[in-house]
Amino acid sequence: MTAADVLLLGLGAVAVGSGLLVVTTRHLVRAGLYLVVCLGAVAGLYLVLTAELVAWVQVLIYVGAVVVLLLFAVMLTRAPIGASDDLDRPGWPALLVGGGAGLGLAALLVDAFRWTKVDLPEAGTAERLGTEIFRSWVLPFEVLSVLLLAALVGAIVVSRPDIGTRE
C-alpha cells in the first residue's frame, strides 16, 4: 500500500458513500449537496491518477455549473424544503438491476486486474492534453462545439413555447 493507494481508497470511499446518499436521501436539496461532495471526491481521484486538467475541468464544469443548474431546477420546480416521502417508487427491481450492474462490473474488474501494480505515467497537464487534442482529435473537438451550440439553441427553443407556434 503506497500513499497513492491510501488516497485512492479514501477518496473512493467518500465518492461511493456520498453517491449512496444522493440516491437514498429524502431531501431534494441535500441530494444536490451530496452530489457536490461526490463529484469533488471524483475530481480528487483524477488528481491522484495524474489527470490534472480533467480534475480542474471537473471542478469547474460539474461542481460549478452542472450542480448550480440542478439546484436552479430544484428551486424553479418549487421542490419541497425538508423531507418528502413521494420521491421514490417501490424499489426492488431498481435494487436488483442497480446492485447487479454495480457488483457485476466490480467483480469483472476485480477478476481482470486482481491486486496488480502499475506505475503512474507523466501528468496530463493542459499542454500535453492540448497537443493531443489538436493533433489527433481535432474533428471530434469541432463536432462537439457544434453539439454545444445545438444544445444551447435547443434548450432555448424548448423553454420558450411562443417560438414556432403559428397564430
Binding site: 461511493v16 471524483v42 435494487l95 442497480g98 446492485g99 450492474a101 466490480a106 474488474l109
Partner: peptide, 12 residues
C-alpha cells in the same frame, strides 16, 4: 471498483 460501484448507484 469505485467506478463500478458509482455506476451501479447511478442505475439504481
Amino acid at each position: 471498483v469505485t467506478a463500478a460501484l458509482l455506476f451501479g448507484l447511478g442505475v439504481y
